[in-house]
Design a protein around this nucleic acid. Structure first.
Lengths: 400, 400
DNA sequence: TCTTTTAAGTCAATTGTCTTGACTAATTTG
DNA sequence: CAAATTAGTCAAGACAATTGACTTAAAAGA
């Protein structure tokens, strides 16, 4: 018997784990369904009325739920619905992109309270970190000022930036040095600089989180968000949870190889906004680039349409690949693309390629339009700490 | 308030859920680490010694574990390790392939006790179902005869066959009519015909389950098995569990589209055993085809080598795609390919394409050889009911 | 050799959480 | 106005993990 080999095992659980899970289940049910009565919650969660009553009392004391007006529903005593209190929890979301950083504050139900952005100076983390920390502090200060209890109800900071993480790669990506950011210990730096719980994910994953919290993937357990931003990636909601892979790099579909024009290239080089900027010879650092592209797309600018036609070919392939590999309920196109562009892109992708997703029992469209909002990534980043604190998860049941 | 809308919620849990989880955690730890003492288990699972002792007594009474010889490890009272009892549970695994069906019986620790196979007559489920049911009954009868307690300890029947399921597709696949099998209510038929709990998965998923139970993915939480059989697919172990997608069709990578020789085709047409048989003009129904291919590969037959070279190109692409999309700890090549062929295929795939998997902190090879055994699919199928009955899972904690 | 230290494992009482069954309250139906 | 139905509470009970003291058995040190 080898004696010093570490023993691998899943953690056990105890009463506290049970209770924590049931609290989360109730909060989740309220988020998913809106206000519910204690009796409704008992039926939905399969807990007894009494258990639900006890937990609701606790949640009310903790300021996470409040009662609404009683409603009469046919025979029997009227029920008192309880809903989440938006001010029950807050989180800060941070997006670091090539040339800009955005920070927002959200509450428990996903309302965006504050949004601020700043230009990121060239030079990577060395010059960028102070800007980022200052931006976070600005948001936090305003939140503190607007809501007295906010600081003690701040559950964490969610950060998002383009992946992949932890790879030894060439740095062809100047002048924003995303490679330098990707190798930088951002999580530790933010954690030390703010004293908050920090999580880090790639921008596509953050977008998927946002779609799941408040967008097209709301209530779905299997959905893939095809994120078309400066780069291109996929945010994976698998089995009701965001999947990040072994090292947080799952879904980096932009690096998938495809044959186009007779040679092998990466999807990212064909169908990202970066490729559009390149095609249009516009400067990605232009401050009004979002509205500029939106306007040109809305005006059916021929150069934009040409890019759309070309990108649609490869995106159609991506959707077929995603459907084939993940078997999701739906695919959602989202990201930093302006609405006029995104709409045209989806139209140009029709008809989709045949795939396993052509099912007789389909309920949802194969491809849907998600958020086309430069703030979607930051919203998803902010949603992560809230979900982590309140959503039912296997990990949360286990002993610490 | 709309009154008849169904309320969506996760199920709550209670003491039984806690207890069930802790039992599973202990069984899982014993499977993963071999025999362990009560004190070891307490440390590994973070439960108290007392709790572990209580559960162990129960498990011993249930005939799932037994004590081994005490071992002295330095100071202190010697510990008594407990190990799983192989006869603690049994399961039957069934594979339905194009022209053959295989059934096996396995025990709790994955030993294969019985294996039987039968040719599947042409004509699909109509003629095939009786053959399959008879084969299962033969295995079951022999198991009953060999182990007196087997019948009451039979936890279920795991079935595996080529996917995808539930798709309206053309039936170009004659004469085995896999399309007909795929649309056939196999699960219900087997359940009614045997009275057992039945699960159904595709062959790649079953292979992945086998690799996780007793193969190269043992103890890994993120692994993808690239299954090269008559078709080609990927078995996905994501976050410690097999992922099947919304409709059981996740991982059907064979239907991914790629450009090859200037035209778009499916991966399956390039790199499956079917394409090899086609290339060699051999009859896939030949009974000795496995050893035939093995021998020709071992002899470096030029036709086989030519196919290997061509298939390696597309498989290399697949591995890069899998690494890019799933970010696994490792990729495992497995399936019904004979060892001589699989070894040469892996060699021909070197060097792998650059990907996110090139990490400075890599522990495992990017690509490993898994089981090359025609019975691997049946073993994985059989492992499913055992894992379902004994492995720690989120679902198992929830109230029924 | 004898005492001390360390670790495995048990015993009995306690604690935390959900469940049960009886109850009250409020409304609609006939 | 009585019966039926549903929401919700109360108090006792059941279940399973925890706690702290205890027993047992070995190694280490004096």
């Amino acid at each position: 018997m080898n004696e010093n080999r570490p023993i691998r095992a899943t953690s056990g659980t105890n009463h506290e784990g049970t209770s924590a899970h049931n609290r989360r289940v109730i909060i989740d049910a309220l988020r998913l369904n809106g206000a519910l009565s204690r009796a409704d919650l008992a039926r939905a969660t399969r807990l007894t009325k009494q258990t639900v009553s006890n937990i609701m009392e606790e949640l009310e004391n903790d300021g996470l739920v409040t009662s609404r007006e009683t409603v009469r529903r046919g025979r029997g005593q009227p029920s008192t619905p309880y809903g989440l209190v938006p001010e029950g929890a807050f989180a800060i979301g941070l997006q670091i992109d090539r040339h800009i950083t955005r920070a927002i504050a959200v509450d428990l139900v996903g309302n965006v309270l504050i949004r601020k952005e700043a230009n990121l100076p060239a030079g990577g983390p060395a010059t960028g970190t102070p800007v980022v920390l200052q931006l976070i502090e600005d948001v936090r200060a305003e939140l503190r000022q607007r809501v007295a209890q906010a600081e003690k109800r701040l559950v964490g900071l969610g950060a998002a930036m383009p992946g992949p993480f932890g790879i030894e790669q060439e740095d062809a990506d100047n002048p924003w040095m995303m490679g330098a950011w990707q190798r930088f210990p951002l999580l530790e730096t933010l954690s030390a600089g703010t004293g908050l719980n920090v999580t880090l994910q790639n921008d596509a994953a953050a977008c998927a989180t946002a779609e799941r919290m408040v967008g097209a993937a709301h209530g779905l357990d299997h959905a893939v968000c095809l994120y078309v931003g400066y780069g291109i990636g996929a945010g994976l909601i698998l089995g009701g949870e965001l999947y990040s892979g072994a090292h947080g790099n799952a879904g980096e579909i932009g690096m998938a190889l495809l044959m186009a024009g007779g040679r092998q290239t990466q999807l990212e080089h064909r169908a990202s906004l970066a490729s559009l900027y390149d095609h249009l010879s516009v400067d990605p650092m232009a401050p009004d680039i979002y509205s500029l592209i939106d306007a040109r797309a809305a005006a059916d600018d021929p150069d934009v349409l040409a890019w759309i036609e070309r990108a649609a070919v490869d995106l159609r392939w991506s959707v077929q690949l995603i459907e084939t590999i993940f078997d999701p309920q739906t695919v959602i196109l989202c990201g930093g693309a302006p609405p006029a562009l995104a709409t045209r892109l989806i139209a140009a992708m029709q008809p989709l390629l045949p795939s396993n997703a052509d099912r007789p029992d389909r309920l949802l469209p194969r491809l849907q339009l998600g958020m086309t909002d430069p703030w979607a990534v930051a919203r998803g980043a902010a949603a992560e700490p809230i979900g982590h604190a309140f959503d039912p998860r296997f990990q949360a049941i286990l002993k610490s």
